[in-house]
Design a protein around this nucleic acid. Sequence first.
DNA 1: TGGTGTGAAACTTTTCACAGCT
DNA 2: AGCTGTGAAAAGTTTCACACCA
Lengths: 231, 231
Amino acid sequence: MSRTIPEATVGRLPLYLRVLVDLAEAGGGTVSSEELAVAAGVNSAKVRKDLSYLGSYGTRGVGYDVAYLIHQIRRELGLTQHWGIVIVGVGNLGQALANYRGFAERGFQVAALIDDDPEKVGRSVGGLAVRALHELPGIVREAEVAIGVIATPASAAQDVADHMVAAGIRSILNFAPAVVTVPEGVTIRKVDLAVELQILAYYEQRKAALADVRRRGKAVAEAGPPATSRS
Amino acid sequence: MSRTIPEATVGRLPLYLRVLVDLAEAGGGTVSSEELAVAAGVNSAKVRKDLSYLGSYGTRGVGYDVAYLIHQIRRELGLTQHWGIVIVGVGNLGQALANYRGFAERGFQVAALIDDDPEKVGRSVGGLAVRALHELPGIVREAEVAIGVIATPASAAQDVADHMVAAGIRSILNFAPAVVTVPEGVTIRKVDLAVELQILAYYEQRKAALADVRRRGKAVAEAGPPATSRS
DNA sequence: TGGTGTGAAACTTTTCACAGCT
DNA sequence: AGCTGTGAAAAGTTTCACACCA
């Protein structure tokens, strides 16, 4: 029944969902694409196009019923069920993820924490005992873990991913700054904290360069003939 | 001089850079677009197109000089200078970011940690004393902070962003699950950990649904006439 | 010979603009 | 009268395929 949803749209549905949940708490019965767009920081045509991939859930002249739309997005994203996740790597980041409230709120339950450092195994983090990597297959089976999170140093990432795949995990979120390859049929996404900073640095540098050109332009204008080029 | 680089390319340059640095450590003098593509997990035409935006730094029949390419990408991304960053919000995530080695390795120095909880102010985290939010303008001026990182709960994010902008910060990385608006001229990027899991859940659910259809199809095939549709 | 650099084609995503429903 | 749903245009991105050059 459900047609394929473009990747770009899938990436925005969680955003709309968060905004809608906030709206629902504020008691909004219906919302227009324009209101939703402003709250999500995108434009309204995009909102309407995105939501149209889910079906025709709006009412012309009125808008979208907030509660109903929340339900439809949840269903489409597969959030009407709970998901078990396992975090491998209990360093600073792994611990922060283990304690992150936002996962549980959205239906993701940390079923286990794993680290191969014998020093860490057995310790309790966020109410969960840290376990060894070789226990992964059993954990995946018993706790029905669907998603694996890699929070190890880069050097361990590929090995951990291989263990995850062998244990039956088919969706992986990789926080390690390393390229990890997985077989066909396994989905992997990566989040690299330093990459985001580097992208910001690029645009920041451009702004500085631009300001510099303007300053020079102004200095020229003050000192001699006005610049003609506008570029 | 330097033409504008497409956003998609800017997003991949840090990835190439990481791979190239690894290659340089392994002693590689030159690298072909194909080798780089494999190591970065993309295709070689994309690598060549991306690198062509920086200029013609390759040699036909040979490839790219690893050290030279590293230098050019660093220069283009603005990584030849050091960047001061300030992290606001010293919860689990803020602490993990403060201790993250990957930032310093790439030229980002955490100049200050800020939290408005009086309990936390004055405490030392990762060798840095936590300071109060009202100190931000002075910190930005003295330490020449260019980038602000928001690691607070969603409810505080907009307020923190406003303080950052007022203090003169023009590039912000937001980890809080909230839409934050900033004035023209300020760049903001967001990383939402739960969003990534939701996207994975969507594709995982699709795979499950597909497997289900196949299973039914097989059952039908075993029980009666073979299915004709392939789709 | 081998691999870059790049027009052109294919595909994806965004935006426009308006018919059509409530 | 107002807002959705959507074709069609525009913009951006990826991939192809090959001329060109070390």
